[in-house]
């Protein structure tokens, strides 16, 4: 099976007044048709940037994105535009306040010249129903809806051109806890029903455990581990992944949202550490880690890890 979308060794750098921000460094990643690939990592690790590259919203400084084996440049992107859509974190900023909900959802159809006005209206009605909103929502404005409802509208818009992949950039983080599971289930149902591929960006590992087929872990712009969900949760191979998992609250314990669990702060992407970028915070770090960038290992089939001393290697 050839991947739906594949990032090959992409790097993204932003020139800023303070210097060159290396947001993403040499990430290679493939999304298979119909799979849920989760992208996890701390804030600022480059998740959104990777997502934007895969959604064609950000041109990588280096590297390529391939679609069904074809290298995507601007012209090819235009042809396959409808296949990749995106859902954002903040449902308030994601919907144009001056547009009717119906027009918002129909926008991809209008831009892709799919159907005439009547057909589009029918499709909008269908989509609203699919995301669990009443049909009359089409003739109202986004600000009349709650955060969860807005996220439903955003999902409907993403679904409109019948994409094969949806990049969902932390679609739950801005929502009330009570609403999160509804939206999560909606995404899961739609993904299954439409056989969609989903690039699910999140820092909530509990949610990822519930949803993902495979998990990619980002740290400071680098992909550090990529593994099937079960393998990763059962036996994380990267010390950073392990630290992330340790931070996940078990049932009955109080939630400690990521912070304070891994020692130290994430370094600035302006000046990444030498060798393995995780070494200043890594409990396993050896002398070599500060000098030499680690190579990829494959401790178990399908599980890849970027570390000199992957966990569980000797023990197994």
């Amino acid at each position: 099976m050839s991947p739906l979308l594949e990032a090959r060794d992409i790097s993204v750098q932003f020139p800023t007044a303070a210097g060159l921000v290396r947001a993403v460094e040499g990430v290679s990643l493939a999304v298979q048709p119909g799979e849920v690939l989760a992208l996890v990592g701390e804030s600022g690790s480059g998740k959104s940037t990777v997502g934007f590259v895969l959604a064609g919203l950000q041109t990588p400084t280096r590297g390529q994105v391939l679609h069904d084996g074809r290298v995507l440049d601007r012209a090819v992107w235009r042809q396959i535009r409808r296949e990749v859509q995106i859902v954002f974190q903040d449902p308030f900023g994601a919907l144009d306040p001056r547009m009717l909900v119906g027009d918002i959802i129909a926008e991809p159809l209008r831009l892709q010249r799919l159907g005439n006005a009547v057909e589009r209206a029918a499709r909008v009605a269908l989509l609203l129903d699919q995301v669990g909103l009443p049909g009359e929502a089409a003739s109202r404005f986004a600000h009349e809806f709650s955060g969860g409802q807005r996220q439903r509208i955003a999902i409907a818009r993403a679904l409109a051109p019948k994409p094969r992949l949806i990049v969902a950039d932390e679609p739950l983080s801005a929502l009330d806890v009570s609403v999160q599971s509804q939206i999560l289930n909606l995404l899961k149902d739609i993904q299954t029903a439409e056989q969609l591929a989903l690039l699910f960006i999140s820092h909530d590992l509990a949610v990822v455990n519930h949803l993902a087929d495979r998990v990619a872990v980002l740290y400071l712009g680098r992909l550090v581990e990529l593994a099937p969900r079960a393998a990763l949760f059962a036996a994380p191979a990267h010390p950073y992944t392990r630290a992330l998992l340790d931070a996940v609250p078990r049932i009955g314990r109080k939630r400690l949202r990521g912070q304070g669990v891994i020692a130290g702060e994430m370094p600035s992407p302006l000046a990444p550490p030498s060798g393995c970028v995780f070494h200043p915070r890594c409990p396993q770090a050896q002398a070599i880690c500060a000098i030499l960038a680690p190579p990829w290992h494959e401790p178990r089939p399908g599980q890849a890890v970027l570390c000199h001393f992957p966990l569980g290697e000797g023990a197994q």
């Binding site: 934007f52 959604a55 064609g56 919203l57 235009r78 535009r81 409808r82 990749v84 859509q85 995106i86 954002f88 974190q89 903040d90 900023g93 994601a94 919907l95 144009d96 918002i104 926008e107 991809p108 831009l111 892709q112 955003a154 818009r157 993403a158 409109a160 051109p161």
Partner: peptide
């Protein structure tokens, strides 16, 4: 983000 969404929609 709605500008980004529009871009993603072509």
């Amino acid at each position: 983000d709605y500008i980004r969404a529009a871009r993603a929609a072509g």
